[in-house]
Simulated scan of single mutants.
Amino acid sequence: MNYILLFLAVVIGYIVALFLKKKEMRNMEVFLAFSGGFLLSITVFELLPHVFEDHSKSIGVYIMLGILLQIFLEFFSKGAEHGHIHLHSENKHFPWILFISLGIHAFMEGFPISEENNLLTAIIIHKVPVAIILSFFFITAGYRKSTTLLFLFFFALMTPLGNYLSTHYDFFHQYETPITAIVIGIFLHVSTTILFESSKNHKFNLSKMTAVILAVIIAYFI
């Protein structure tokens, strides 16, 4: 069921994008702010205490590696993980560089998902607006429908694949804590970037701030 839900998050994003107009995309900033606040909260409330149970200083190193990995990936994805799409619209070929960088990100975020945490909900909330923005860009930029659907199909598979491998292979169980710490670093970078971009020019935005506060409260009590 987890795999299906993760896959459907991208499908829902594509369907919603088919009916959106450009001016309506502004509302996505509030949804993104909520998803960033929720993802950050789940990371802080649930994942961080889990990996620091052994009080190992090396965990901090893995978290920093995750942050650096995400920074490296964003050189190629141009920030698509947090709602920014920058592609050359005149190039209608399959965007391999974007797919590989987003695929690695999506693959990694599936590893810590388990019944012991609420990360599944956080990932779904994170994926839907990103999928909407990705789909909307491909549609409005004039990419072929086959290219758009192929990209989204494989993108939708990556997180369930990461979760499947972490669940069914002992190798990943052995390195569960370091891998989770790396993913925490990725989440910290992505979620804080979303929150920072939600207050552009350091201007206060009541709707976005409300969305973030609501996300933190919900994440704490679920």
Score class of each variant (00 low, 15 high):
36 G>Y: 07
177 T>H: 13
83 G>H: 09
193 T>E: 15
118 N>E: 11
33 A>R: 07
212 V>D: 13
83 G>C: 05
9 A>D: 02
100 I>K: 14
125 I>C: 09
51 V>D: 04
165 L>E: 08
113 I>K: 05
93 H>G: 09
56 S>W: 05
220 Y>G: 14
68 L>K: 02
147 T>K: 05
88 H>M: 01
217 I>Q: 04
151 F>N: 07
203 K>D: 08
3 Y>P: 04
27 N>R: 04
86 H>S: 11
39 L>W: 05
64 M>N: 03
105 H>A: 14
24 E>T: 04
129 P>K: 01
8 L>P: 00
151 F>I: 05
60 G>I: 06
67 I>M: 14
205 N>T: 13
211 A>G: 09
33 A>D: 13
3 Y>V: 02
34 F>Y: 09
63 I>K: 06
57 K>D: 09
201 N>C: 10
175 Y>M: 10
61 V>T: 14
147 T>D: 12
150 L>N: 03
37 G>R: 14
200 K>D: 03
27 N>V: 06
122 A>Q: 12
159 T>S: 15
149 L>E: 02
106 A>D: 06
30 V>K: 08
101 S>G: 02
82 H>Q: 02
89 S>E: 13
178 P>C: 07
161 L>E: 07
206 L>C: 12
171 F>G: 05
196 F>T: 12
33 A>W: 02
41 S>F: 01
213 I>R: 10
169 Y>L: 15
123 I>D: 11
68 L>S: 11
88 H>P: 00
12 I>N: 08
58 S>H: 14
208 K>I: 04
133 I>L: 15
159 T>H: 10
21 K>M: 04
211 A>F: 02
205 N>Q: 14
214 L>C: 12
218 I>T: 12
1 M>P: 04
92 K>S: 03
200 K>V: 10
41 S>A: 15
97 I>G: 01
147 T>G: 02
98 L>K: 04
125 I>S: 07
122 A>W: 09
10 V>Y: 14
6 L>N: 13
56 S>Y: 07
90 E>L: 02
26 R>C: 04
12 I>M: 13
